[in-house]
Amino acid sequence: MSNLPLTAIAYPAKGSAGRTGLWRTERPVINYERCVKCLICWLYCPEPAVVRRGDDSVEIDYDYCKGCGICANECPAKAITMVEEVS
């Protein structure tokens, strides 16, 4: 109670809605042999859960990726496939 601010004042954090990767029914899987490092998947990821590395290669942050599939749909090299999640 005493550590609450005056009103609802929130601070930036990853996972503000929890581990949203758990929402996924399909996961994007990158075929690095086909990837041309165009960064289209990174550009369009709304989360953002496509991590852009120093050399402009990319990886998926599965903790937060909701599996929308925009990356797979937009990838011009067809290097991303959506694979069913199984628990």
């Binding site: 930036p12 954090a13 990853k14 996972g15 503000s16 809605a17 929890g18 581990r19 949203t20 929402w23 165009c38 960064l39 289209i40 990174w42 550009l43 369009y44 990821c45 709304p46 989360e47 953002p48 859960a49 852009r52 402009d56 942050d61 903790d63 937060y64 990726c65 909701k66 599996g67 929308c68 599939g69 925009i70």
Partner: peptide, 24 residues
């Protein structure tokens, strides 16, 4: 695309629907 800053000011793991345009 490559000239876009790498820095992200909108952090992942938020409550937007999957595929949300507002978040993008």
């Amino acid at each position: 695309v490559k000239s876009l800053p790498k820095e992200e000011y909108w952090l992942p793991g938020h409550a937007a629907c999957s595929g949300c345009p507002a978040s993008l």
